[in-house]
């Protein structure tokens, strides 16, 4: 008899409270924030005038990565002031993604909708505020009546732009991160369950147990792949945030 019992999805992604209103996702979010702060705190205590090593090297690499590969690529020199925000965003998302492959934790906090939604809403508020601050009410005007397109196309493009800026961008930001991390988590869980079920199967078919190495290899491969996905999703969220802020500043483009 071969039995595979796959738990309901809510059992895999919803966690019981450890104490009032504080569950595993909350722990991971707090650890992500604390880990980021600890990294920079340790880095700030080291002598900055010597060649950076360890935590200082990691912190400086991350600052340079945000400045050189995100801010300068999307916003130019004017956007350097946004580095602390984008750096915090990147580190927080990355450290929330990483526990998906860390034993015991084994759950990315971003595989739940709350954190991606909160971050997307923060980004939405910020880029719209930046748009109004730099352009005043022209921000809305240029959005719904874009002068850079032919007159006949303006109502259609304007409607699309308005819908995109006000509704779709935060939604797509949140869902992209959430869906990718949830899908990765479900894949890991599926192959772990399958591998375990095949290794422990009570069956007369002798080939079934050794075949359990196949989902195990897939599990190992996907775990390595999730390292890349976690980094990539943090990078995509952060660079899109930079693009949205920059496009809100220069609405005429």
């Amino acid at each position: 008899m071969f039995a595979l019992e796959f738990p309901p999805i809510n059992e895999l992604i919803r966690w019981r409270d450890l104490f009032t209103s504080f569950n595993k996702i909350s722990i991971i979010a707090c650890l992500a924030a604390f880990g980021s702060m600890l990294l920079f705190f340790l880095a700030s205590r080291k002598d900055p005038l010597v060649a950076p090593t360890g935590s200082r090297n990691l912190a400086e690499r991350s600052v340079e990565f945000i400045e050189r590969d995100i801010v300068m690529q999307t916003m130019g020199k004017d956007g350097i002031g946004w580095t602390p925000f984008l750096l915090s965003l990147f580190l927080f998302i990355y450290f929330c993604n990483l526990p998906g492959i860390i034993p015991i934790l084994q759950m990315p906090a971003t595989a739940r909708m709350a954190i991606p939604l909160f971050l997307a809403l923060v980004v939405w508020v910020i880029y719209n505020a930046v748009g109004f601050r730099h352009n005043g009410f022209k921000y809305i005007g240029a959005m719904v009546w874009p002068k850079s397109v032919p007159v006949g196309m303006r109502p259609l493009v304007g409607a699309i732009e308005f819908l995109s800026n006000i509704v779709l961008r935060p939604f797509s930001l949140a869902v992209r991160l959430f869906a990718n991390m949830l899908a990765g988590h479900m894949l890991l869980v599926t192959f772990a369950f399958l591998s375990n079920a095949m290794f422990t199967a009570q069956t007369k078919q002798m080939f079934l147990r050794p075949m359990g190495v196949l989902p195990l290899f897939m599990l190992i491969f996907l775990t390595a792949f999730e390292v890349l996905v976690g980094f990539l999703q943090a990078y995509i969220f952060t660079i899109l945030t930079a693009v949205f802020i920059n496009s809100a500043r220069h609405i005429e483009h």
Partner: peptide
């Protein structure tokens, strides 16, 4: 989204 996760995650960020 769960409210408590929203609060803890948002607060941490």
């Amino acid at each position: 989204p769960e409210g408590k996760e929203l609060v803890w995650g948002g607060g941490a960020f």
